[in-house]
Amino acid sequence: MSTLEIRDLHASVGNKKILHGVNLKISSGEVHAVMGPNGAGKSTLSAVVLGRKGYSISSGSVLLDGVEMLGLPTWQRAVAGLHLVLQYPTEVPGVMLNDVLSEALKGRGRDGDIARLDTLLKTEAGRIHFDEKFLDRPLNVDLSGGEKKRNETLQLSILKPLFVILDELDSGLDVDALRDCARRVMDATEQDGLGALVITHYSRVLAELRPSKIHILVKGRIVETGGPELADVLERDGYAAFTPEESVEDASTSDPMGLNLFP
């Protein structure tokens, strides 16, 4: 049983503070959702956990089984067991999927899987209806939105991390692709004990990825944590119900007549 714990995480981009002390803990086999409106800091959270450049962290911890991840380079966090499924997977011209996975598996000392990588890729591609012809393409080049997310899910299923952050999995995804990808993630949580942190704006994805806990992230803070029923509240009332009071006051004082002078 592994745990990923985010403790009092404060992060900024340039001079703009985005995360104001995020706390969150997830264990193997669990699915948690982090939901929030635009600008809440959802993508920053995923970037900071994986160590993307361009963010400064003023305080806090990201602990994988008690081991501090902050300060480790991205690739070592990945080897340790963290994985990110990107909202918009990057095109890398000329770099082939199996070359990247071979190198990634090498870093994890999984020589056996390198030897049978072709078979693994075909099996996993079949499970999520990812056309085998795309296996010989440079990474994400000339793939549709749905194919890119299937490609991301394929990599996840081969690399078998302890925890995955799915950043807006449903962006650019048709219903079929969303179901294929989500089911593969759910299978991994049940069969391999994968822990999944689902970052999303919309509750649509939660019909397939069924979280046991939902965290509401607003203005860089988790303002509410609860069970799946929170999604229904959001669906009904929107994020306004979770907007911190001081910012409501801010809004009312800056625009007392509701004239929307400062949209």
Binding site: T74, H83, L86, T90, V92, V100, E103, R108, L139
Partner: peptide, 17 residues
Amino acid sequence: FYLESRGVNPDVAQRLV
């Protein structure tokens, strides 16, 4: 970043790119 987030070390990632 994309390659490194798969667990590829930066030197190898740069070579691949």
